[in-house]
């Protein structure tokens, strides 16, 4: 589905990703792990076209995403939940969802499906996004992305700083999306969460894939966690 081949990218003269190859399949959750600075968030931005690829390719069902301007990428069904949520803070919950719906011309049915997943948002539609609690903000960030009805969902550390009940809710939503055929790429730092969710785990180091393992081959004390994440 989403295929990344020999990808190199960075910021100006500073290279961050080097010859990276990766695949995300439909109805699978691919978890990305790695230390700070390994290039995980840059990879997410590169898939979205926000950081240009200097070499290699990113294709989604045969469409070369790497050659599109950033604003044309989500139209092909790639949705992004950035690290730190990056909501449109002064806009209301309804307006944030509207931005997501407008991306691929989705309508009220999609909005209702998202609000069914996160009923708390339905109660807060007219509230300014910046005034939501951390958990509610993360629901909105994910909800806004789901308004695209995505084929590929990129989640960059969605459980960072959240309480356990909220983490469980997000885990359930991600698993439900998997059942609908969405290919999910999840950046996550906690091995327990990864082992609950992942079909495959990609360990990154120095801007490239250092190891790729099926979840069945990993245990909580697998050496990859210590080697590439430090936990």
């Amino acid at each position: 589905m989403l295929r990344i081949d020999g990808l190199s990218a960075g910021y100006g003269p500073v290279g961050v990703l080097h010859d990276l190859t990766l695949e995300a399949r439909a109805a699978q959750i691919t978890c990305i792990m790695g230390r700070n600075g390994a290039g995980k968030s840059t990879l997410m931005k590169c898939i979205m076209g926000l950081v240009p690829a200097s070499r290699g390719s990113i294709t989604l069902d045969g469409v070369a995403l790497h050659s599109l301007p950033a604003h044309r990428v989500p139209g092909h069904g790639v949705a992004y939940v950035p690290q730190g949520r990056r909501l449109f803070g002064p806009l209301t919950v309804a307006e944030n969802l509207q931005i997501g719906l407008m991306t691929r011309n989705m309508g009220d049915e999609t909005r209702d499906r998202v609000l069914d997943l996160f009923p708390r948002l339905r109660e807060r539609l007219d509230q300014v996004a910046a005034t939501l609690s951390g958990g509610e903000q993360q629901m909105l960030a994910i909800g806004r992305a789901l308004c695209l009805e995505p084929k590929v969902l990129l989640l960059d550390e969605p459980t960072e700083g959240l309480q356990p009940s909220m983490i469980a809710l997000i885990r359930d939503v991600v698993l439900r999306l998997k059942e609908t055929g969405v290919a999910t790429i999840l950046v996550e730092q906690r091995p327990d969460a990864v082992l609950q969710l992942a079909d495959r785990v990609v360990f990154m180091a120095n801007g490239t894939v250092a190891d790729c393992s099926e979840r069945a081959d990993l245990s909580p004390d697998a050496p990859q966690f210590m080697a590439y994440v430090g936990v």
Binding site: M48, G49, H71, P74, Y80, P82, L91, M102, R144
Partner: peptide, 11 residues
Amino acid sequence: VDRETAQAFGI
């Protein structure tokens, strides 16, 4: 509010 995120939503 956020030019980069706006681009990530097709703007």
